[in-house]
Design a protein around this nucleic acid. Sequence first.
RNA 1: GCCGUCUUAGCUCAGUGGUAGAGCACUCGCUUCACACGCGAUAGGUCACAAGUUCAAAUCUUGUAGACGGCACCA
Length: 940
Amino acid sequence: MELAKAYDPKSAEEDHYKRWEESGFFRPEINQDPNAKKYSIVIPPPNVTGSLHMGHALQHTIMDVLTRWKRMQGFKTLWLPGTDHAGISVQRKVVEQLRKDENKSPLDIGREEFIQRAWKWKERYGNTITEQMRREGASVDWTRHRFTMDESLSLAVRNVFCTLYDEGWIYRGLRIVNWCPKDKTVLSDLEVKEETKKDGKLYYLKYPVIGSVPGAVATGEFLTVATTRPETMLGDTAVAVSPSDDRYKHLVGRTIALPLTNREIPIIADEYVDAEFGTGAVKITPAHDPNDYLIGQRHDLEQLLIMDDSGKMNAAAGEEFVGLDRFVARAKVVEMFDELGLLEKVDDYEITLPVCERCKTIVEPILSEQWFVKMDEMRDIALDLMKSEGVPHFSPQVPHEKVYTGWLENLKDWTISRQLWWGHQIPAWYDEDGNVFVGRTEAEAVEKAGGKTLKQDSDVLDTWFSSGLWAFSTFGWTGSGSPPYEGGVAAASADGVVLSGAGEKNPVAIAPGSDMSGDLETFLPTDVLVTGRDIIFLWVSRMIMLTKKFTGQKSFEDVVITGTVLGKDGKPMSKSRNNGVDPIEMFDKFGVDATRIYLASIATGADIKWNDIGVETYRNFANKIWNATRFCLMNAEGITVDHASLMVDDMPLPDKWIISRLNKTAIDVNKALDKYEFHTSVSLLYHFFWDDFCDWYIELKKDEINGGDAASTTRIITILEIAIRMLHPFMPYLTEDLWLKLPGTSSELHHPAYKNPVATAPGSDKTVMLTKFPPGDVAAIDERAEREMDAVIDVIKKVRNIRAEMNISTAIKFTVHIAADVGIQDVFRANEAQILKLAKAEALVIAAELDVPRASAKAVTNDARLAVPLEGLIDFDVERTRLNNQITKLTEEKTRLDGQLSNANFVDRAPAEKVGELRDRSVELEGQIATLNQNLTSLS
RNA sequence: GCCGUCUUAGCUCAGUGGUAGAGCACUCGCUUCACACGCGAUAGGUCACAAGUUCAAAUCUUGUAGACGGCACCA
């Protein structure tokens, strides 16, 4: 079989995925070993509004590597895919579409119609990312695809809500919350980010003090307060000073005539106020500031709300202000204070403002009635799990474990209601008097209300509430008895339209009538969660708490936190910076496999600046693998992969050596993957394949293989087959493509758990992804062979060095003289052909001592002395320089060692083994230096 | 303000007590019959800085500088 000269990723990417998926290879049911242990991962569900970015590509690669690796180890493996309904994001898309296409607002069409449109939007555009995941080669079980608004997941949400409400863990309350005036919804603390404004201002407002009795005349005295939000003064209901502030003691108990209003407000004393800060007097706006709210409660102050849900001033702000945007009102307040002579001064002030994570609108703290989850017990659940079992185990552990526990310890209640239409509507109903009835269904609520007519709460739940259930709701848990979810069956929307795209390709491999009702028992707890550090609080922590609370199980044992892929400018990729790199473009340019293995080569958790050259390196690697296979196949007529060929006793040295290297690599790759050190395993595989297998093994064996030596060819093809298996989790397309081309591959080579997969078509059951991942065999490690091979390699390298430094054309063949101990002489003799070929020499003279003319170039290795007679070719100056360079290098090393060895402290205190090691090396160096010096002397 | 991470070859990054590594770029040489997305051979680093612990520090401790991240506060 002849392969193309270069690897073309496109065709491999197009050929294999569909067959894998349709053959059911991604499904745990493919595993026929009743005793197989399970391995499960749930995907962090990407937003349905999303398209693949480099962060996804990184995380998906890690998850797929783990999934494919464990599957090949014979685990009953499930990687469960899905998408998140992404409340605000989808709502915004639909609102925008409505405005553009029909110039209508959501209110124009009403809630029901709006939700219909949202479902349609989701159906039409929500599959972008799932299609892109197929391109990535993600071996997810598409028949188990979940959407956070699937019927069964929605049922789980309602049940969880009701249970938490019944237990008092969910409550409705009036609080200062973060309000986004653009999205017109409340936000949780975690959805609020900060933005520093250097050009902020601090306004000093003079408030006229009046007498101690309400209605008394002004005293002519003023109390100055400083504020960054002057417009909120319209909602002031007090001014507070520190109780220990002598400057203002006499004012406490008196009142202020609040300018621009006709209200009188009290001057109060409260410990919260820091006399040293600003003017020492603070305006108190209980309805628009969290601290003021608390002070207001302590002093029983009125809570005056002066804005509406879009950030415009309402009637309470006064006639002159009603309807004005908060920033227009701010300017007007300042202007009017100035006119009244009450604006003391305006200072420049650097300020950090809270902004909406998504739309960057400045968040307004306002008093509002919302639903909350009480986090006290929730926090304890998570902390206990960490303290008692160390779960989850973070990789990397530092700093995430500490950040996670630290955050838990300071946890505040979670605002879960959102003023949106797209999402899980809160299962709470109200009667005409505002009494609340919580139930799984309207009927249940009505029953609780004694048959009264009720109206459902119009809010929906925070998106993270449903994703917090993801680790178990996806496995069919609903909270209502046995899981009713039927695998692959799409969820239905309110109008009965089949909505989910999942399961449309019901593969033959799924036995008719198979259900997934055992999934919860089988796959929970999941083994590992792979995600970014930005959602540790938003998602990871909540999943840990809610899973434990509702199933009694851990959601996952381990959490792998991936780093951030930064743009070429070293900053996080973002649309506004326009520094993003599209994974799909990389796939097109370098191939999916190259992109994947490059991403896997990044140290776990480390941020990395994107560079195309990194991917190019692995594109070249893919081509190298392709060409190594090409070479093997060119000579493989009548040969088949045969694992017994690696078990024979008397193999030539290069074969013993490569088998030893292969097994060592396999053992180390498995160890690295066990520790989630993906970059270590990539590096091991890269160097094994390129350096050991290609640069040395193929070159050493080339003549035998070209000469039709069947045993050698069988062996190299078999070693290649094992190497391809090890590379498969990282480079699935290339390895599948090549593995299928290897002679003698069949489902007979599959892991015992996959010996008889149900095939859709003859031959299609054959795949590298169901072979056994090489575990590596300690018994196959041959240290002696590795030492001997190193000796041979050293000789070849030294001769090559002589040729290069002496600038001798490869057309000129010369004789190589080797002097060495008797034992190692045999090794050189046995590998004479290899040395001659790779050193491009024509003859080898092996003896105990060198016997060469003066005009020879010389070198030493750890095991031998070398000489190459170069009559008429040698440049003595160059040779002297060569020798001197070597002497210098070795002498430097020896000086350093001897320095250490002459240090009594070192000899006394360092481990004897270490001291012995250094001593041996020093003696060795001494001999080598002496030889080189002799060589130098004999030149002159 | 509190907590944390990073600083290693020109570039992008590995390396966590015992002789400093990779890929790319650079220099030199190769139309060697798998691969120029290649082969061979070199060169290149006071491991940010300072002090300490240790027989021994890129690695541990403390401090300094710079870059970045999280949390809190912000009248």
